[in-house]
Every structure is written in structure tokens, then in C-alpha cells.
Design a protein around this nucleic acid. Structure first.
Lengths: 197, 197
DNA sequence: CCTACCGATCGGTAGG
DNA sequence: CCTACCGATCGGTAGG
């Protein structure tokens, strides 16, 4: 039951935001009464915390798979990128929720990131630095900032992709694919030095 | 007075979100009573609309300046990019508010983008296509998606930059500058073909 | 997991 | 621009 509540809350928090979602609405979505929900979680804030921890849990489960995606040089980037994007695409609520939480509680999220994500991004930046020494990666690239920018692009594309697409005059909702293809091209192009011919 | 209300509301909507901001809180920030505020705007929703239109107004005023920033080839990108980023940096509320609105009301924002922004982005994509014909810009680049991705990076960096910085283990709040520098490098690197030596 | 109920706050109106 | 006030909904508790 706790799981069903968390899933319903995740969806509603992601779509409408925390403040705009009433405990009543979550209870309705689950099919129980409001006090029953509050028996499981005590307070709305406690539920928010549970939703967030649940997301981070999936994250820590999937991250190793993402980072171990490929083995060699240039292919590894493609694998890591597509795995990361797939992670958000298959459950777009995650990207929306993440962005909302970063806007609503920047301090709390900062601490959370430093604790749970820093170890993993370090792996990436170390790997990029190795590429720089080997001459495969641009020397004027700042590994930390590069990783942040690529993640920002990926999360932003999934969270607000359907909307930004309208800047180009698109009427429908799914030109996100071409955006992702271009995102991968940009990330690759900005990382690797031109291949020697 | 209407202006003061709009400014207070902009700040609060950006920081806390629309649903989490009470009309009372806005009235307090302005220094008037709640019914006085509602005399000027009629409803909270009406105020939201006014805040949004006010932002788009500044946008349309500044966009020409941004796009006319530079004249020649490779320098133009730098000028446009930094102008756009400065536009958000000098008033970070704008970036936050924009992202929040895209999450809260994707359909409304889609229409709004298509109406007000599409003409301007068309200028950029046309210019990029010219660069492709001249051989200065990568041929496998998709102009529309490229522009979206760069804007996504810029807005995302300003709106959530202080938070993402923590992914790298940063403790303080202002390594955003290095992120922007890297963003410009990425955008430039992914756009132009390597210079002939 | 439910029914019944609480004080506080919400957006908004009446009337001047 | 104010005071006074409205019904509805909010998150949460008592008690079983």
C-alpha cells in the first residue's frame, strides 16, 4: 500500500507540483480516505521525503548499469548518454519531479546531490580527464562543468521538451526524438577532438 | 502600483511557485491589503497572466538587441549566446518562472512560444543554415534542435545552476560562471566546423 | 483502514 | 484603497 501511495504521489507531484497537490487528491487516486493515507505517512512533508528517497533509490540502482554501459573510448559516451536519457524517458515523471524539487528546495537538493550523486559523477570526470591525457578529448574542456551541462540538457529536454519544441513552430507533442539525437551529437562533438584521418 | 504588484508576484512565483504563493503573501510584500490587490487584478489567475505577459514584454524588447548583437560569422554566436545568458542572469527570476510555467501549464506555454518566440528562433535557424551552406557549420547539425538544446542549457543553468553544481561536490553557491563558460564552449564547438589552418 | 471533526488559511466578495 | 466577512478546502487529529 505504501508503494501505491508513493507512486500516485510521484505522478501528481511531478505533474502539478507539491503545493498544488492536496493530500485528498492523492488519497482519491489511491482509492482510500485521507486519514488512512496520513496513517501511513504522518504528514504531507513526510510523503514528499518518501517520494524523493524512492526516486533516488531507483537512481542508485540504475546508475551502475548506466555507467558500465560500454567499454571502449568513443562508444562509451554514446552508451552512457543514451542510458541516462532512457532512464528519464521511460519515466518522465522523474525528470519533472527532479526539476521541481531543485526549484522548490535548492538547499536540500544540493545536500542530497552532494551525498548521493557526487561519487558517480566523479567516475565520469575522471574518465574524461584520462581522455584528455590521451588526446582524445578537447583540452580546453572543463570536465565538471561539461558533465553538468550534459545532464542539464538531458533532464531539461525530457522535463520540458514538448514545450520548447513549440519555439520552432511545431504543433504536435513528439519531436523530442530529434532533440535527443541533436543532444547526443552536441555532447559528442564538444567532447572528442576531431578524429585523425 | 500595478507594476509593484507584478514585480512582487514575479519574485514570489519564481521562488516558491504559483500554488505555494498566497495572494495574502503578495499583498504583504507590496504593503497593501489583500482585497486591494484583488481590486487591481480580479483574481489570482489574472495576476499570473499579467506576470507572464510582463515577462514576455521584456523579452520582446530585449530580443532584437540580443539577436543584433554581432555581425560577422563566428563572433556572432558568442555575442548572441552571452547576450541571452546575460538576459537571464541579470534577473534569475525570469529563468525560474519560465521553467515553472513550462512545467505547470505546458499547453498554454506551447501556444505562447509558438506565437511570440517562433519568429525570432526562425532568424537563428536561417542564419545557421546559411553557415551550413558556406561550410562553416557542421552539416549533420539539425538547426531547430540545436537552438532548442542551447536554450535549454542556458535556461536550465540559470534556473538550477546552483543546485547542479553540488553534483560535483561544490559547497558554495557560485561556480555558475565556470558552467557558463563551458556552455559557451560546447555551443561553439558543436556548431562550427574546425577552422582550416 | 474508517467516520467525524478541528482550527487555519485559501481565494474572493460586499460595501463603502 | 480599506474593514468585515464568506464558503470551501487545506493538512492534520481523535477515537475506534
Amino acid at each position: 500500500m505504501k508503494d501505491r501511495i508513493i507512486q500516485a504521489a510521484t505522478r501528481l507531484f511531478a505533474d502539478q507540483g507539491f503545493a498544488a497537490t492536496s493530500v485528498q487528491a492523492i488519497a482519491d487516486a489511491v482509492g482510500i480516505r485521507k486519514p488512512s493515507l496520513l496513517y501511513h505517512f504522518g504528514s504531507k512533508e513526510e510523503l514528499r521525503q518518501a517520494v524523493l528517497e524512492n526516486m533516488l533509490l531507483h537512481w542508485k540502482e540504475d546508475l551502475p548499469r548506466v555507467l558500465a554501459a560500454a567499454q571502449r573510448g568513443r562508444d562509451r559516451l554514446n552508451a552512457v548518454l543514451t542510458a541516462m536519457i532512457d532512464f528519464f524517458i521511460e519515466e518522465p515523471h522523474r525528470a519533472k519531479l527532479l526539476v521541481r524539487e531543485m526549484l522548490d528546495r535548492p538547499d536540500a537538493m544540493r545536500k542530497l546531490f552532494r551525498k548521493h550523486l557526487h561519487p558517480w559523477t566523479s567516475l565520469l570526470t575522471d574518465y574524461i580527464r584520462m581522455g584528455q591525457e590521451a588526446g582524445r578529448v578537447h583540452l580546453d574542456l572543463d570536465p565538471e562543468s561539461y558533465v553538468i551541462q550534459v545532464v542539464t540538457m538531458a533532464v531539461g529536454t525530457v522535463a520540458t521538451g514538448n514545450v520548447t519544441a513549440a519555439m520552432l513552430g511545431a504543433t504536435w507533442a513528439e519531436p523530442v526524438e530529434s532533440q535527443i539525437k541533436e543532444l547526443v551529437r552536441i555532447a559528442r562533438c564538444a567532447l572528442f577532438t576531431p578524429r585523425p584521418t
